[in-house]
Amino acid sequence: MMGHRLLICWNVPEGTGCCLNRGSSANIPKKVICVSLSASLLLILLTLGLTGQLGLPYLHSKSSQAVRIIAPDPTGVLLLNQSAVVDQQNGLVTFTVTSGMNLTSTVLFDIKHGLICYQPLRQESCFLRTMETSDYEDVDSLFQASAHKQSDLQLSVNETQRRTEFLGVVAASQADMSTLEEPFQVLCRDRTIHWTKRADGPGKQRLVYFCIDICFPNNICVSVCFYYLPD
C-alpha cells in the first residue's frame, strides 16, 4: 500500500533486535549493522564513564603514595611504627599510628582547608583543630618524601627532635558534621567531633587523658596530648 514502509526486523543470537527499512539499507548485511551499533553504544558508555557523566566514583589511588615511618624512642628500645598515605592531588595526609602497646589511632591532615582531625582508639569522639605554620612545614616533608618515592623511612635516634603539644578540648564545642568535608565525615562516622585549641598545659588540676605520637621525615616527632578545658 502507498504511504507505508515495510520494516524488516530480526534478533541476533545475543538477543539484540535490529530493524531496516526495505529499499534503503536492505543490501547491508544485518550482522555488520548490529555490530556497528553495539560498538557505538559501547564507545558512548565508555566516554560517559570516563568523564564522570554516569556518576562513577573518582578513584584517587594514582595520586596517593604510602609512606611508612619507623621512629625509635630516645632509649632506642621501642619503635613507633606508623604509616602515612599522602594524597598530593587532594592535599590530604592520613596517618595510622601504632604505639608500643599495639594501640592504633588515625590522624588526618587536610592541607587545603587547614584542618587536622584526630581519631584516637577507644574514644567515641574525634578532635579537630586548625593547622599552624609548624604543621604545614612538617606535612611538607611528607610530600617531599612521597615525591621521591621513599616508601620506608627510618629516623635516627640522635637526629630526631621531639616536642610535646597540649590541646584542650573546648567545652560545648561539638562541630556540625554536615559542614565538614567528606574525608572527615568518613573518618569520624558515628562519632562526635569536638574542637580543640592549643594550650600551655593541663595544670595540676587537669590530667592528660591520652596522647598521640606522630613522626615526620624531617626528624621531628610530636607528642599531641589532649585534656578537657574547664567549663
Rank of each mutant, 00 (worst) to 15 (best):
L92R: 12
N81Y: 13
L78A: 15
R206V: 05
V107C: 01
V12W: 06
T192Y: 12
F143W: 09
K62A: 15
Q123V: 13
C126E: 10
S105H: 01
L41Y: 14
K149T: 06
L187P: 00
V67R: 01
T192S: 13
S24M: 09
R5N: 12
N219R: 12
A171K: 09
T160E: 06
C126Y: 02
E165D: 05
L142S: 03
Q53R: 13
H113E: 14
R122H: 13
V67P: 00
E165L: 11
E14W: 05
Q185R: 12
L207A: 14
Q119P: 01
Q150C: 12
G76R: 11
L45H: 11
N90S: 04
I212Y: 00
C18Y: 13
V85S: 10
A26L: 14
D176I: 09
D200Q: 12
V97H: 00
L7R: 05
L155H: 02
V77C: 15
I214M: 02
E181N: 12
T16V: 14
Q53W: 08
Y118P: 02
T160V: 11
G100W: 04
V107L: 01
G203T: 01
G17H: 11
L54S: 05
N158C: 05
I33M: 13
L48F: 08
M1F: 10
Q65I: 10
V107E: 00
L37C: 12
N158H: 15
A147Q: 15
N11A: 08
G49T: 05
A175P: 05
S99F: 00
Y228I: 02
T164V: 07
L128A: 04
F95Q: 02
S40K: 13
I212E: 00
S146W: 08
G114N: 00
D140V: 12
Q89I: 08
C225W: 04
K62I: 15
C117W: 00
F226Y: 11
S134W: 09
P13Y: 09
L180R: 00
V186T: 06
L42N: 08
V169A: 02
S223C: 14
G114I: 00
T75A: 13
F216Y: 06
N90R: 10
N158I: 11
V224W: 08
F143D: 05
M2E: 09
